[in-house]
Amino acid sequence: MKGIILLVLGIGLLHTASAATHSLKYFYTGSSEVPNFPEFVAVGMVDGVQMFHYDSNSQRAVPKQDWVNKAADPQYWERNTGNCKGSQQTFKASIDIVKQRFNQSGGVHIFQYMYGCTWDDSGVIDGFRQIGYDGEDFLVYDMKTFKWIAPKQQAEITQHRWNNNPAEIAQRKSYITQECVEWLKKYLDYGKDSLMRTVPPSVSLLQKTPSSPVTCHATGFYPSGVMVSWHKDGQDHHEDVEHGEILQNDDGTFQKSSHLTVTPEEWKNNKYQCVVQVTGIQKDFIKVLTESEIQTNWDDPAPNIVLIIGVVVALLLVVVAVVVGVVIWKKKSKKGFVPASTSDTESDNSGRAAQMT
């Protein structure tokens, strides 16, 4: 399932045409015996921004962005709530089936499904679909043949059944190449003021103690495509550098850190720079590593609050990513959009995700 998490966190090449590539992704997670966590969670994301959420505790599909309601018909949320309730039961049954195949009885287990599509302004369409169990790939969809591949022997039964079902093959191909892209374009149209915006980062150099790594912390930027790198005397520097993950702030912007382990003598005798590049912004944001630029808590603990918050948020998102799989595997009509499909999520004829068989 590392592949799923990497896809969630993946960023495009900076200052290139990749900024025009857009995505619609869904993450379904079923869990067994995970304390204090819903047994089923569904999350929808457009260009890395969460716009839809359902969990088995609330039993409701709800929007996470105001513009989603503009793209939805009046029955959208009731319909998707019903679909998610059906998928919740499907995932519960699927976990039991997979546990039997691995000769497992109880214990903590996670069953994940990620699917979606990408589309760019030149009309190139691609898609992805993966199923994972306990952090590893269980079934992977081949977009060239529109067939399933089974990395695990325990998945071969399902692989053969699904690959020999012509109706299901046609439905899954149609969803990725047509329906998913239709909804993606519609979401981009209604949410363009938010999704298409660019916000520059705030960049700081932080350090706990004189012997601690120096952290270059970029926050408040949008979109999520970012490159945080260190330069030494004008050249890319990769030695003793550790990069953090991209995390989302409460306001929908993002943050990312990069940590450099270097002695004070070394950075005082050489020119070290942190360079931040954000997709869609034709400007580099640079901080030169000097004593005056470093914010520290050597004398005052207040400046280190940012570091503490960043660590807490990172730990929380890592937990969510493991369980939920999220850090974690355009034409507008004045009368409103009338979609070919009444739901943007993939499902079988019963309105739920396909059950493991």
Rank of each mutant, 00 (worst) to 15 (best):
E179C: 05
L188Q: 11
T158S: 12
F128D: 02
T145D: 08
M143D: 04
K173I: 03
G127N: 11
K147R: 13
K185C: 12
Q178K: 14
Q153V: 11
I131K: 05
S174P: 00
V140A: 11
F138S: 02
E136T: 09
Q153F: 06
F146K: 00
I169S: 11
C180F: 08
E156I: 10
I169Q: 14
G132Y: 02
V124G: 00
C180W: 03
K185N: 13
V181K: 02
L188C: 08
G132H: 04
A155T: 06
Y133D: 03
G135C: 04
Q154I: 08
K152V: 02
G127P: 01
N163H: 08
Q154R: 03
Y175V: 03
D189T: 15
C180A: 14
I149W: 00
Y141M: 01
G123V: 07
V140R: 10
Y133G: 01
R161C: 10
D189Y: 13
L188N: 13
K186V: 15
I176W: 01
L188G: 09
P166D: 07
Q159R: 15
V181I: 15
D137I: 01
D121N: 12
E168I: 14
K144E: 13
L188V: 07
A167N: 09
N165S: 13
K173W: 06
Q178L: 09
Y133T: 04
C180Y: 06
F138D: 03
V140W: 01
A170K: 14
D189W: 09
K144T: 07
I169F: 08
G132D: 12
Q178E: 14
R129T: 08
I176A: 07
